[in-house]
Design a binder for these strands. Structure first.
Lengths: 186, 186
DNA sequence: ACCTGAACACCGTTCAAGT
DNA sequence: ACCTGAACACCGTTCAAGT
C-alpha cells in the first residue's frame, strides 16, 4: 500500500487503468482491446500506459492479480464448507470471467509474465482444492491426480459453451467419480 | 479431388502453402507466423495467399482439416482395439501437435471458421470415444458426461506441460474413474 | 485464372521533448 | 516523476494492374 501522497496518486491512476482494462477485456476480449482504446477508456494517452506497465501483457497480469485478490477474499469468508458447494461456487465465479480465463490460456505461450501468473494460479487453486479434498477425508495418494482431473474438467466447462443440463450432468459425474469407492473419497 | 490439369495445379499449390503453414504454425505458433513469412516459406508473395485462402484463419482451418484427415486414416487402421490403448495413442498423437491444439482454442472466439471446425472436431471425436465406451460395455446414460470429462482431461494434459509421471498418474486415475463400479463401465 | 507491387488501416511500442 | 506528439516497425488485408 502507498506510503505517501505521491504513491497514493500513482496507485489510484494505476487502479483506474486496471479497472478500464478489466471492463474492456471482459466485454471485447484482450486482442480486440487495443492499447489506444484502453487508454481512451482510462482517460489517458496510449503511451502513458507504458509509464505504469511494462507492456500489454503486464496490464493483463495486473487485472488478473486484482481479480484473484477480490475473489479470494470472498472465498475465504464463504458461509458453507461442503466440497461440492464450494466447487460449484468457484465454477460460477469463473464463468463470469471466462473471457479472462481463455485470454490467459491464449497468452500463455507468448508472454512469460502471463505464464508465471498462470503457474502460480494453478499452484494456489490446486492447493486449495487438495486441502478441501483431504478435509473431506480422501486418501492422500490419490488426491493429486483427482485434483488435476477436476481442474481440467472445470477449465473445459469454461472453454466450451455447453447447455446448463450438460454442465450439471458433467459436474454430477465428476463428483460421482471423486466420491466413488475407487477414488477413496467418502 | 481435381478433375483436370488446371485444378490439379491449383490443389498442388494450395497443398504447398498448407504444408508450409503447418510447419511454421507447429514450430513458431500461429501468431508468430506472419503471412509474409508464410508466403516466403511457400515461395510466393504475401497477397498470393489471399488468392487461395479467405484469410489467415482460413489457412489454419485448411491445416487442421489436412491434419485431421491424415490422423483419422491412421486411427481407423489401428492394430489394437482396447479403450485404454486407443486413448493413449490419441493423446500421444495430439501431443505432437499441441501447438495446433492451443492455437485452435486461442482463435475460437475471434474466427467463426475456426469455431465451426472446432465444433465439428469435438462432435467427431466425442462420437468416436462414445462408441469405444459403449463397445467396452458402459452404461449408455452415463457415457456422455464421462466422455466430456475424458476429453477435457486430455485437453488439460495438452495445454499444461506436466511431467511424464504426473501424466501417467492422471491417465491412470481417469481410466480408474471410467472403469469404477460407480460409472458402470466394466 | 493467377500473381504482383504498392498501398491502407491498424497494431504494440519507443523516444525525444515538455512540465 | 509524469505525460505527450510524433514516429517506428510490423501486422493482416485490399486493389489496381499485369500476364
Amino acid at each position: 500500500m502507498p506510503r505517501n501522497k505521491r504513491e497514493q496518486d500513482r496507485e489510484e491512476k494505476r487502479g483506474e487503468i486496471i479497472a478500464a482494462a478489466r471492463r474492456l477485456f471482459l466485454s471485447d476480449g484482450f486482442e480486440a482491446s487495443a492499447i489506444s482504446r484502453l487508454a481512451q477508456a482510462a482517460g489517458v494517452t496510449p503511451n502513458t500506459i507504458y509509464w505504469y506497465f511494462k507492456d500489454k501483457d503486464d496490464v493483463l497480469v495486473a487485472v488478473l492479480e486484482a481479480e484473484l485478490a477480490a475473489q479470494l477474499a470472498e472465498y475465504q469468508s464463504l458461509p458453507f464448507a461442503g466440497l461440492a458447494e464450494r466447487l460449484l461456487w468457484v465454477v460460477n465465479r469463473l464463468e463470469q470471467v471466462s473471457q479472462l480465463v481463455s485470454t490467459v490460456h491464449a497468452r500463455l505461450h507468448a508472454s512469460a509474465a502471463v505464464n508465471d501468473w498462470h503457474d502460480r494460479f494453478h499452484m494456489l487453486t490446486e492447493g486449495l482444492l487438495s486441502a478441501e479434498m483431504q478435509n473431506a477425508g480422501g486418501a492422500a495418494d490419490r488426491i493429486p491426480a483427482l485434483v488435476k482431473i477436476s481442474v481440467f474438467t472445470i477449465e473445459g466447462l469454461l472453454a466450451h459453451s455447453l447447455s446448463q443440463e450438460e454442465k450439471q450432468n458433467i459436474c454430477a459425474a465428476l463428483v460421482g467419480a471423486l466420491l466413488s469407492r475407487n477414488s477413496a473419497l467418502p
